[in-house]
Design a protein around this nucleic acid. Structure first.
Lengths: 337, 337
DNA sequence: CTGAAAGCGCTTACAG
DNA sequence: CTGAAAGCGCTTACAG
């Protein structure tokens, strides 16, 4: 037996109570321009006394704006979603949007079926734009489709591929990686290995390039291996590196998770960290402060990244042009180096 | 210069092309009952040839259903959101909802202002119901308000407080904790410490009770300390425990994060894990498999939890009554015990 | 099984 | 500054 709940008040009730037309109420609701002071205050009083709240669907229907955006995840497995970066981005984006009266819909689209559904959902008008989380090739077809449909999109991470039509926000991977390698050198390390992310991945490219840039002539391909961002892959890469270059005295992984994986392999193999081998990561997610020893890492300014990403996207929705924003990463030194 | 994009086809175009009324198209769209085969196929053809997609806002306005639910986070800080459990729940809930044609809106409401905004958002009709993530006292006022407004709610975690009006889904904390303590005893441990979550917290209560139940007469209050779920708090609790009961030979934390914090303190203090002290957690989040040594833990069946939570909530939205579901947790043994 | 019509609750030119 | 009215794109009794 549901409550015979009284019907919610509509703009009609408010108008009647305030003694004005519905149009006037609407104008008050939408900024209050072209409304006399008396009318405005009468309307505001009527709103509070009736407890009126605008029906968002009616509004969206009339304006053809949903006032919400999608957070689109196109990675296939749990591997990447488990990445703490995602929860930080989701939270940050939701908060930044809320401040502007917009909301965030989470779309998980790893499988082909999910991607088809996501494309449908997005192009149906449920959302005004899309925040793209670390999308690599796995989502490229979907992204291409969305771009073709004219959907405003901003990617977290450096632009890849169709960058002309996408906005993007990222931390400065190149200089961040350089900074970390310099830090390791300052600590007296000379055989610095690098565990990169997957090829062609946002983030993967720039960090490797930064590493190479500092090493210059000393660059040794044997000191470089690759993971897929997961801790497990970092551990495997570390194993291979130890086999190939047992004289390494530092390892810098392109994210914290792989660094943590590398750390556990080193520990298990009897190396002391940082005495024998220094370990460094990238991101400064909670895994960095949690592992023992604590992980030295480059902190991505996630709050800023989210705020700028949201701003960029809403600009695009309002008819602006795509921009690319790069923000500096900051060195955070802990016990591992 | 925006594309002078052709207007999207509406139900009107589809009806015209199919040679039927808009009502008939609508019936096809909504299940196809009371529609002749010829009419149905004509409509379907018209839909594909026009590329028609229903406008969700028009539909919501007419049906008074939003077809989306909120994922509400009422914890104040980053501490808890950093908890990997959240990203798992968000992802799982979003996927379970997508399968049913519904979507998930993320609402972060830690501050009072955010909670007021969230209440407004929810009661405005943006969503049909709420998935409540691990809400303790911090969100109780908001929850009370929502319950009062008749909003369907399902909580992740065992019911606390106003359980009569909320549905809930949780893993079996009590028996899960019992199982873990028994495992530690099987491993020959006799001085088993426990790090609990905050008082009155869903999850915190049952796990502590399970621990106590196994120990019975041997229960020693000195072996129990408390954290706030964060790694840092687990480390602090471990420190206190070591000071108070240096003879402990195992520590069981109520979640993986606190276990990881405890682990790092033990390691730093020169204890060998598990030789000197065994360490166990709860949840089986990625932190458990990442730490070294790997953490023995109780795995929560998150996929099931999400699926059941969504089912329950949609039932409630459809007029059902609140139910409480408890799912078994599973022991996962790694190197730390 | 099907169509005509009312209704969902807003917004927005258009006159004044 | 304000009201009357059309329009946004669906759904759903109601007749037939």
């Amino acid at each position: 037996m549901t409550q015979p709940s009284v019907k919610r008040p509509t703009i009609r009730e408010v108008a009647a109570l305030a003694g004005v037309s519905r149009g006037t109420v609407s104008r008050v609701l939408n900024g209050g321009r072209w409304v006399s002071e008396e009318a405005e205050s009468a309307v505001r009083d009527a709103i509070t006394s009736t407890g009126y709240k605008p029906n968002p669907h009616a509004r969206s229907l009339a304006t053809n704006k949903s006032n919400s955006v999608a957070f689109l995840l196109t990675e296939p497995t749990d591997t990447l979603f488990d990445d703490p970066v995602f929860s930080v981005l989701v939270r940050g984006a939701a908060q930044a949007l809320a401040r502007r009266g917009q909301s965030l819909v989470v779309l998980v689209a790893g499988t082909a079926a999910e991607q088809a559904r996501a494309a449908d959902y997005i192009t149906s008008g449920h959302v005004d734009g899309v925040l793209l989380a670390y999308s690599s090739h796995s989502g490229s077809q979907l992204v291409t489709e969305l771009v073709g449909a004219g959907v405003p999109i901003v990617a977290f991470g450096p632009p890849v591929g169709a960058s002309r039509s996408l906005g993007s926000v990222a931390s400065d991977d190149f200089n961040g990686a350089r900074r970390m390698v310099e830090h390791l050198r300052d600590r007296g390390r000379s055989r610095i290995a690098f565990i990169s992310g997957p090829d062609n991945t946002p983030g993967g490219v720039g960090r490797l390039a930064g590493y190479q840039a500092v090493l210059g002539d000393e660059f040794d391909a044997n000191l470089v291996d690759r993971g897929d961002w997961s801790p497990r892959s970092g551990a495997a890469a570390m194993q291979r590196l130890l086999g190939r270059t047992p004289d390494l005295d530092a390892v810098f992984a392109a994210n914290d998770q792989m660094a943590a994986g590398a750390l556990s392999v080193l520990t298990a193999a009897g190396y002391r960290v940082p005495t024998d081998v220094a370990v460094a990561g990238f991101d400064d997610t909670n895994i960095a402060s949690t592992s023992s020893p604590g992980l030295t890492t480059m902190r991505q300014p996630f709050d800023q990244i989210c705020a700028e990403g949201v701003r960029l996207l809403l600009d695009l929705v309002a008819g602006g042009v795509p921009a690319t924003i790069t923000l500096p990463a900051e060195l955070v030194v802990r016990q591992s180096t």
